[in-house]
């Protein structure tokens, strides 16, 4: 087993065991932290598919998380206050909300990706960010859903056999989802499709000369990634029970990118490690000083600059 696989498995084992132990020994706070970490790890894992493996520096990934959360919040709102019944969208059923979150995000990724992926480099970064800001302002402008004050989710998603009001069950769902997300990304990136995606990152012209339409492959990955981030958003909405456009702010997108790069893009476990390191450090540093942003930022930059391939770079196999 490679050192990387081992590191990933150990981290996942710790993540499975520690939070429940904390919870049952009276430290509910740490379970909360772990749940947030796990959900953000799913979002980071989805970003890794296009950023780490595809080389597509999308600076708007938080928009998908936000859209996913609103796909839970808006039906829950209408369920309570009326409206949209005719569309079947006044509901607290997770079996409606979660597919809605993923479909909305897939569609948004398809439409915006079709445009963004025609650009390269800095233009791609700017335009993905611009589309995300567009969603941000769109949500801000809708008074009914609270505008920039946000929206309280009064009732969590109802799923058969699960009670998401129970923090342990919510964590369990997030954890299982993270495992699934990691396995799916791993499977995709090792497949023939994944080879094209990775090849296009390394040398798109070469791959095109092989007769492959890199645009179509990238767009497909972009849509899969968006749908996965939407799923993470649906979980996040259930976790925070309060959603606001702030979730889609460009700084949130930046944080997701940082998690991927910090942990190690293009690896199965990297985004999860990055999300864990990010959330835990943020928590610890904010206890020491209210000026934690500066040392935190410097620390992150140091890791990115001095470890090749992020935290996963420490677990490189010998060659």
């Amino acid at each position: 087993m490679s050192p990387r696989t081992l590191a990933t498995l150990v981290a996942m084992a710790l993540l499975a065991v520690l939070p429940p132990v904390f919870y049952y020994t009276g430290n509910a706070f740490w379970l909360d932290l772990a749940t947030r970490l796990t959900i953000l790890a799913i979002a980071a894992t989805s970003l890794n598919l296009i950023l780490g493996y595809g080389g597509l520096v999308s600076f708007g990934h938080a928009a998908y998380v936000g859209l996913g959360a609103y796909a839970v919040g808006i039906p829950a709102y209408h369920w309570l206050y009326g409206g949209l019944e005719h569309l079947g969208l006044a509901t607290t059923s997770g079996l409606v909300q979660i597919p809605l979150a993923m479909a909305t995000c897939a569609l948004f990724a398809l439409v915006t990706g079709a445009i963004c992926l025609r650009t390269r480099g800095v233009y791609f970064i700017m335009i993905t960010m611009a589309f995300a800001q567009m969603v941000y302002y769109a949500i801000v402008s809708i008074e009914e859903y609270g505008g920039d004050d946000g929206l309280v989710i009064d009732t969590r998603s109802e799923l058969p056999g699960l009670n998401l009001d129970d923090p342990i069950q919510l964590f369990g769902l997030a954890y299982v989802s993270l495992v699934a997300a990691m396995l799916i990304v791993r499977m995709i990136t090792r497949s023939r499709f994944g080879m094209v995606l990775r090849g296009a990152k390394g040398n798109a012209e070469r791959v095109q000369m092989m007769g492959l339409n890199t645009y179509a492959y990238r767009l497909t990955a972009y849509v899969i990634s968006g749908a996965m981030a939407g799923y993470a958003g649906a979980l996040l909405g259930n976790f925070t029970t309060f959603i606001s456009p702030e979730m889609m702010d460009w700084t949130r997108s930046g944080e997701l990118m940082f998690m991927v790069i910090l942990g190690g893009g293009g690896t199965t476990g990297g985004p999860m490690l990055g999300a864990a390191a990010f959330i835990i450090l943020e928590e610890l540093l904010s206890h020491f000083t209210i000026y934690w942003h500066l040392p935190f930022g410097l620390l992150l930059i140091a890791v990115v600059l001095f470890t090749r391939g992020g935290l996963m770079g420490f677990f490189r196999g010998r060659k």
């Binding site: 499977m187 497949s191 023939r192 499709f193 994944g194 094209v196 092989m210 007769g211 492959l212």
Partner: peptide, 14 residues
């Protein structure tokens, strides 16, 4: 695989 025209496959490891 480009020549074989079987690149849109997601499941099996290449």
């Amino acid at each position: 695989q480009a020549r074989a025209g079987s690149s849109f496959r997601f499941f099996r490891a290449a």
